[in-house]
Computed example of a mutant assay.
Amino acid sequence: MTDPGLYRHLDEMAPWNDRLQVLEVIGIADEAPDVKTFTFRSDNQTWFRYKPGQFITLELPVGDEPIMRTYTLSSSPSRPFSISVTVKAQPGSLGTRWMLDHLKRGDHIRAYGPSGDFSHHDHPAAKYLFISAGSGVTPMMSMLRWFNDCAPWTDVAFVNCARRPEEIIFRKELELLGSRMPGLSLGFLIEERSSRESWFGHMGRIDAVRLPLLAPDFREREVFCCGPEPFMRAVRDMLQAAGFDMAQYHQESFAAPVAEPLPTPSADNAGEGKVEPTLPVRFAFSDIDGQCVSGQTVLQTARASGVRIPAACEFGLCGTCKVMKLSGEVEMSHNGGILDHEIDEGFILACCSRPLSAIAIEA
């Protein structure tokens, strides 16, 4: 029996708060081989406020210590009572494989976010080109679903690349949207034929010859690209060679930049007996006092002190390690994982904040 308490108007509900509520699995759907969509609702009847294309971080109870994995939302905020992630298990994947094998309806899981700035809402344009490969289709699907609900006349060229026809994620829904959205043009590109189903469309890898066939006016469009790093690099190089205005190019990537090794605590410096300078860090909720070696982050200090702060990307993108700074000063160099108003309120990202003085945080 459906719970009558679920029937509430949006203005009777508060937005979801990732620090107070967890997610409940309410639906699981197969999309392609080793690809599933998991749909969640809040465990406290709240609604979800986010931009199409943003991501969340899930805390997965895989082993003795939970692991953090970041997934783009494939759902649209135009349908705010639930959110969905569509995940694909790669060879050697740990978190995603656990989700496919163990997560079931009724399970509860902690999540953080939403975060990210890969959204058409931040780049309004007359015409768009979405280029994706593999599970990189998920942010494109979020944006396209929003267009379908809110602005179905929008001019969108949607190009999706896959290895085989059966690996095209959301293919049936995309073809249905193609018949309903007058401004949508679909272009599928596969690398090899399959014995499971016939294929009469484009074949090969996207290049300077095939792109104009799929989107003849690509130079006039705002381009969003998501997929494996080599795929995005090839698309970016191709557009640059074609004279495309790269200010109109946007890509989603969770790859960490190359970082220089950070210093670690030591009793002396190169055998000279020099003690490394430290700064005190107070973890208020844990009632623990730590010492931060010069150059270390708040997150590294927390781990050395036995304090757990959830973290996923660890380079200032996902926002999972956001904590309130109670006192003191830090130097923070992030990659979009925190908003200006959150910084003004006193929040920091522990993974990319280095103390400049004694500090205290809520952790």
Rank of each mutant, 00 (worst) to 15 (best):
P139Q: 04
G328R: 02
R219A: 00
S115G: 07
I28R: 15
F244R: 01
A151Y: 08
L103Q: 05
A234G: 07
G183I: 11
A259T: 12
E229N: 11
M141I: 13
P212G: 09
G316I: 04
L356T: 07
S42N: 00
R171L: 14
D11F: 12
Y112T: 01
A312W: 01
V22E: 14
G271P: 02
G319R: 00
R205D: 08
P114H: 02
R205N: 11
L186K: 12
A215P: 04
V62N: 06
S266W: 03
F224T: 02
V35E: 03
M332W: 00
K322E: 06
W153L: 13
A241K: 13
M238D: 08
G63E: 14
T138H: 07
V235C: 08
S185E: 11
L103W: 06
E24F: 03
T72H: 07
S294T: 15
P228G: 11
W47Q: 00
L20C: 07
S195G: 08
I361L: 13
P165N: 08
R180S: 13
E272C: 12
L211V: 07
P230W: 05
M232P: 03
R210V: 14
K36C: 12
K51A: 11
H121C: 06
G243C: 04
V159A: 08
R79V: 12
A241N: 14
S75Y: 07
P15M: 11
M140N: 01
H123W: 06
E272P: 04
R97Y: 07
R196Q: 13
I348R: 00
R210A: 13
R69E: 06
C292T: 11
P114L: 03
F218P: 01
M232W: 02
G136K: 01
C226R: 05
F40M: 06
A241I: 04
G106H: 06
P310D: 10
A32H: 09
S74E: 10
R308F: 14
L10S: 10
A312F: 02
E342H: 03
D340G: 05
G187A: 09
S198L: 11
E314D: 07
A284G: 04
L60K: 04
F224P: 00
R180E: 15
M1Y: 13
R308V: 14
S119N: 02
T37K: 05
W153Q: 15
P66M: 06
A255E: 14
E331M: 05
R110S: 06
P33A: 06
R282K: 11
G27N: 10
M181E: 15
P355F: 08
N160A: 15
S353A: 10
V87T: 11
L326G: 02
V307D: 10
F40V: 03
A32G: 04
Q90C: 06
G178A: 13
R308S: 15
S294G: 10
I361Q: 05
F147V: 05
Q45N: 09
L23D: 01
G95T: 03
R193P: 07
N148L: 09
E65P: 05
A312E: 02
W146Q: 11
R19Y: 09
E314W: 00
G53R: 01
S42G: 09
A350L: 01
G27L: 05
R164E: 10
